[in-house]
C-alpha cells in the first residue's frame, strides 16, 4: 500500500519535472517525508540542513520571486518550531508557499511526544490567509497537491506516516466536506488518517442498527459550512474524529461553526489535551482512545441523547 507521503514525493516530482515554478525545500528529513524524491530535479531541490526557520524564510523569498515552494519537514518542526516565521514571513504577506508537515498526530509513534504534532492544526488555522488541509487517502493527497499548486496563497498540508487505505472509489471534491456514506442517527466527521477508522466504526454500528453518516474533511480551513449544516440536519448528533488534540482541531472547528447556526450535540474524539508517549502507533491509538471501538462506544453511549437535552 502506497503511503500518502509516497504519493506526495512521487507526484510533486512528476509535476515539478514539467512545472519549473515548483521548488522543494528539505531540512534533512527528506527520506522520511519523501521530499528527497524531488532531488532528481536539478537546481530546484534545496537542501536547507537542520534549520527549519531559515527554510521557511527562504521559501518566502522564493515565493516573492514567483516560485511555488514546498517546504517540507515533520509537522512539529514546521508548525511548531517555525510558527513566528510562518506568521510574519508567509501568512502576513500572504505568500504563495506550501508547507508540508509530515508525521502528524500520533503517527511518529516510538519517537514520542517531541515528534508528535498534536497541535499543528490549532496553530496553522489560527493564522489569517492560511489554508489548512489534511488528506485522508492517496486520492485526497493527490487532489490536495494539485489544487494547492493552482491556488495562489499559503497552504499548510498535514500528512501522516503509515498506510492510509483508500476511502474513495472516485474523485473527491476539493474544499468540500465529502460525504462517503449517508446515515440518519449520527454523523462521524473525520479528517486524515481517522476517516478510515470512522468507516470501520460505521460498519460495526450497522450491526447495532445504528445508521452512521461518514464525512471526510480534507479542508479544515476554510471549512465547508454549507455541507456541514446539511449533515447536521440529517442526524441526531455529531462525533468528530481527529488525530490531533481536541483543543483547536477539527472538533473545535465544527463546534465553532455549528454553534452559531444550528443546535446539535457535538462530541469529540481526539487526543484529550495531553502529551502522549513513545510506543507503536497502534498501541498509542488504543491507549489514547482513537480506535474504531472508541468511536463505536462514544456513539452507543450517546445514541439516546435528544437534540435539546
Amino acid at each position: 500500500m502506497e503511503e500518502i507521503r509516497d504519493v506526495f514525493g512521487n507526484l510533486i516530482s512528476e509535476i515539478g519535472g514539467k512545472d519549473s515554478r515548483i521548488v522543494v525545500l528539505d531540512a534533512d528529513l527528506g527520506t522520511s517525508t519523501r521530499a528527497s524524491k524531488f532531488s532528481k530535479i536539478p537546481g530546484r531541490f534545496i537542501q536547507c540542513g537542520i534549520a527549519e526557520q531559515n527554510m521557511v524564510g527562504v521559501s518566502a523569498g522564493l515565493a516573492l520571486k514567483g516560485f511555488i515552494p514546498f517546504a517540507v519537514s515533520f509537522a512539529v518542526f514546521i508548525a511548531g518550531r517555525c510558527y513566528d516565521q510562518i506568521r510574519v514571513s508567509i501568512a502576513y504577506p500572504n505568500l504563495n508557499v506550501k508547507l508540508i508537515g509530515s508525521h502528524a498526530g500520533l503517527t511518529p509513534g516510538p519517537d514520542g511526544p517531541t515528534h508528535q504534532a498534536i497541535d499543528d492544526i490549532a496553530l496553522m488555522r489560527a493564522l489569517p490567509n492560511m489554508m489548512v488541509l489534511e488528506p485522508a487517502d492517496r486520492r485526497e493527497m493527490a487532489m490536495v497537491i494539485e489544487e494547492s499548486i493552482k491556488l495562489e496563497g499559503p497552504v499548510y498540508i498535514r500528512m501522516n506516516r503509515g498506510s492510509s487505505p483508500d476511502i474513495y472509489d472516485n474523485k473527491p471534491a476539493f474544499r468540500k466536506i465529502n460525504i462517503l456514506r449517508e446515515g440518519k442517527d449520527v454523523a462521524l466527521i473525520a479528517s486524515g488518517f481517522m476517516v478510515h477508522k470512522a468507516i470501520k466504526a460505521a460498519k460495526l454500528l450497522e450491526l447495532e442498527n445504528i445508521s452512521a453518516l461518514i464525512a471526510s474533511v480534507h479542508c479544515i480551513k476554510p471549512i465547508d459550512t454549507e455541507t456541514l449544516l446539511d449533515i447536521a440536519k440529517k442526524v441526531k448528533f455529531i462525533v468528530t474524529i481527529e488525530n490531533h488534540s481536541i483543543v483547536g482541531g477539527l472538533g473545535s472547528v465544527i463546534s465553532e461553526v455549528l454553534s452559531e447556526i444550528y443546535q446539535i450535540p457535538i462530541l469529540k474524539i481526539g487526543i484529550k489535551d495531553t502529551f502522549a508517549e513513545s510506543a507503536e502507533t497502534d498501541d498509542l491509538f488504543k491507549k489514547y482512545g482513537l480506535t474504531e471501538m472508541d468511536i463505536v462506544k462514544k456513539v452507543i453511549e450517546n445514541i439516546n441523547m435528544t437534540q435539546f437535552s
Binding site: V23, G43, R44, I46, Q53, N54, M55, V56, G57, V58, S59, A60, G61, L62, A63, L64, K65, G66, F67, P69, D84, Q85, R87, V88, S89, Y92, P93
Partner: peptide, 24 residues
C-alpha cells in the same frame, strides 16, 4: 518589498530571493 517586524527573519527571505534569481 517585504513585511518584517519580528526581528531575525529578513536574511532568510533575502537569501530566498537571491537563490530564486540564481535559479532563473
Amino acid at each position: 518589498d517585504m513585511s518584517t517586524g519580528s526581528l531575525g527573519q529578513g536574511l532568510s527571505v533575502a537569501a530566498g530571493c537571491a537563490l530564486a534569481d540564481k535559479i532563473k
